[in-house]
């Protein structure tokens, strides 16, 4: 049986020598259970050790290996080569982020955004002793659970034309994370000051692609639209703050 192969066209960018990324082609074995990430690992291990990319858990939970695969932002560990028939498959760094090297993008801006929404439980008063938990019913847990599933893979940013055109836009994952805490029955904040901004929820034009590409079904688009309602009501009815 002749071993089947598939061509991967991989974006290379070496800042010391390249002015802009160029595609480099590699032939890798096409195996039914190989993900795109396995193809990249094969290149790094056996064909070209100079290829740089991030990966870790290869089970879709660490959020490292998001890349642009044939024009779509995907987690490469969960995207199978067999999806692409005879190939070739074009693999590029996530769009919308500065490229540090090859398939590695700069995510510091994203982290700054996450930090800016106060993504922690905001409580008033003293923390009670560590003898009992705050009560939370399954229904109250359900109210925010979906928004707590974000793995920070940033596919939603890459899919969002608003973010790609305007890097200052707070973006889907950060707003969903803010909502994860806003809707938590134990939280006492509504993060109005950081969300009720033109670069925050009001920048969103509800394209909806963030939700479409989210591998964890977080539905950031929903989180944003819901906050628009919250913020609008709070603006019209100033006494309606929580």
């Amino acid at each position: 049986m002749a071993a089947e192969t598939i061509r991967l066209d991989v974006a290379r960018y070496r800042p010391e020598e390249d002015a802009e990324p160029v595609l480099q082609s590699y032939e890798v074995p096409l195996r039914p259970d190989w993900a795109v990430l396995d193809g990249l690992a094969h290149i790094k291990d056996h064909l070209d050790g100079t290829l740089s990319f991030r990966w870790s858990c290869r089970m879709g939970i660490c959020g490292s290996c998001g890349m642009d695969v044939d024009g779509e932002p995907r987690l490469t560990c969960g995207t199978f080569l067999a999806e692409y028939g005879a190939g070739p498959v074009r693999i590029e760094p996530l769009k919308g982020f500065p490229v540090i090297r090859d398939l590695v993008v700069d995510i510091d801006g994203f982290l700054a955004k996450l930090s800016s929404v106060r993504p922690w439980l905001v409580r008033e008063g003293e923390e009670p002793p560590l003898t009992a938990e705050y009560a939370q019913t399954p229904a109250q847990l359900d109210a925010y659970k979906q928004y707590s599933m974000c793995i920070n893979c940033m596919l939603c940013y890459s899919a969002c034309p608003v973010y790609v055109l305007d890097p200052d836009f707070l973006g889907p994952a950060a707003i969903a994370l803010a909502q994860r805490y806003n809707l938590d029955s134990r939280d006492m904040d509504d993060r109005f000051d950081v969300l009720n901004l033109e670069e925050a929820v009001w920048g969103c034009t509800f394209v909806g692609d963030c939700t479409r590409v989210c591998p964890k079904h977080v539905d950031p688009a929903e989180a944003i639209q819901r906050y628009k309602v919250t913020a609008a009501l709070r603006s019209v009815l100033p006494w309606s703050g929580r």
Partner: peptide
């Protein structure tokens, strides 16, 4: 419990524990 106080979404019993 400390993790719970920091917001960890532990699964719950119907009564909230």
């Amino acid at each position: 419990i400390q993790l719970e106080h920091w917001g960890c979404p532990w699964s719950r019993e119907p009564d909230g524990r």
